[in-house]
Simulated assay, not measured.
Amino acid sequence: MLTKARQVGSAAVVAILVTVLASAPSGSLVGYHRGFLFMAIACFAATITVVATNPRTR
């Protein structure tokens, strides 16, 4: 189940990234800057989710 969720999440993030890149004017770096910002926010959100849902065990 985890593998399927990971694949769906990856596909959704890539689809959003392509949309962000395509929305920028042609020949502009704005799309890449927005894409980088989106990926940074997505990674931060994933980190917070993993930390919040997995209790620490020793």
Rank of each mutant, 00 (worst) to 15 (best):
Arg6Trp: 15
Ile41Asp: 00
Val30Lys: 02
Phe44Tyr: 09
Leu2Lys: 03
Ile41Cys: 10
Ser26Ile: 14
Leu17Asn: 03
Arg6Asn: 15
Ser28His: 05
Ala45Met: 09
Ile48Arg: 12
Met39Cys: 13
Ile48His: 09
Phe36Thr: 14
Asn54Phe: 14
Asn54Arg: 15
Ala52Lys: 09
Ala15Thr: 04
Pro55Asn: 05
Ile16Met: 14
Leu37Lys: 07
Thr47Gly: 06
Ala11Arg: 15
Phe44Cys: 04
Cys43Gln: 11
Ile48Lys: 13
Ile41Phe: 13
Phe38Asn: 10
Leu2Asn: 01
Ala15Val: 08
Ala5Trp: 04
Thr3Glu: 09
Ala45Val: 09
Tyr32Gly: 13
Ala22Asp: 00
Thr19Glu: 10
Ala46Val: 12
Ala46Ile: 11
Ala45Lys: 10
Pro25Ala: 00
Asn54Ala: 12
Phe38Glu: 12
Cys43His: 12
Arg58Leu: 03
Met39Gly: 02
Val50Ile: 13
Val18Cys: 04
Gln7Thr: 11
Leu21Asp: 11
His33Phe: 12
Ala45Thr: 11
Thr57Asp: 11
Ala40Ile: 04
Phe44Val: 07
Phe38Lys: 10
Val51Gln: 01
Cys43Leu: 10
Pro55Met: 08
Gly27Phe: 00
Phe36Cys: 11
Thr53Gln: 08
Arg6Ile: 15
Ala5Asp: 06
Met39His: 08
Gln7Cys: 11
Ser28Glu: 01
Ala42Ile: 03
Gly9Arg: 01
Ala22Lys: 06
